[in-house]
């Protein structure tokens, strides 16, 4: 867990990826090389279809690696077995475009699921941890609400709380504000980044919102499945 002990949080080398089969097969990633350092906030940009989400889901263990190598927190994901994937998934927080909350669980219970996955030790005092997390994100008054009674921004904040509650060393966020209007989207992202950075978490986030770019340490732009540019803005 200690960021200092594993200098590279994520190392991607020669990553290729294809969708479809046979004649219809289409290559969506071409020889991607990428390294994330501990504590970095990296923003991934690019037109839709440029392969951002594919890269993110591959690194997030949500999709099997076809060709090339991904080392995530010291583990190789290419050809990894189910047990390795399950362990790796637990070590990162993933924030989706849609909130993907469980509709029959309350806000508090949804956040609890982010702790329960880590087993008994993480569940000690779970309720206070989950309450505090939701409180920090401004949802202290909505703890026992089901997702159907929350607004889009509130739901996305619950999803962020769920991803952050176990203090993962690495967070992937795939356009977390895509479903929200500009202003509440910005507010949600600022809240999320503020909370995550305060604990030294490494973040890789896909976004189209130019207003967030100022906060980034690095900005990577993708085009047609290739990394087009990789700009470090200021030291991490």
């Amino acid at each position: 867990m200690n960021a200092q002990s594993c200098p590279d949080v994520l190392t991607v080398m020669g990553l290729n990826h294809w969708f479809g089969e046979g004649e219809a097969q289409k290559q969506v990633l071409h020889g991607i090389n990428l390294t994330l350092k501990p504590g970095e906030l990296v923003i991934l940009m690019g037109a839709s279809g440029s392969g951002k989400t594919t890269l993110l889901t591959l690194a997030g263990c949500l999709r099997s690696v076809q060709s090339g190598s991904i080392r995530l927190l010291g583990r190789e994901l290419a050809g990894a077995n189910e047990a390795t994937l399950v362990t790796s998934r637990r070590q990162l927080g993933f924030i989706f475009q849609a909130h993907n909350l469980h509709e029959s669980l309350t806000a508090l219970e949804n956040v609890r699921m982010g702790l329960e996955v880590h087993g008994r030790p993480a569940m000690t005092d779970w309720e206070n941890k989950a309450r505090a997390m939701l409180g920090e994100l401004g949802l202290g008054e909505r703890l026992n609400y089901l997702p159907s009674r929350l607004s889009g921004g509130q739901k996305q904040r619950v999803a962020i709380a769920r991803a952050l509650v176990a203090n993962p060393p690495l967070i992937f966020a795939d356009e977390p504000t895509a479903a929200l209007d500009k202003d509440s989207g910005l507010a949600v992202v600022q809240l999320f980044l503020q909370r995550a950075r305060s604990t030294g978490t490494t973040i890789l986030m896909v976004t189209h919102d130019n207003r967030i770019l100022d906060l980034a340490d690095r900005i990577i732009v993708m085009e047609d499945g290739r990394l087009k540019s990789d700009t470090t803005r200021h030291a991490a």
Binding site: V86, S88, N100, L101, H102, G114
Partner: peptide, 10 residues
């Protein structure tokens, strides 16, 4: 919802 749980490491 199950896919989300699977993504979280369940």
């Amino acid at each position: 919802e199950y896919a989300t749980f699977k993504a979280m490491g369940y």
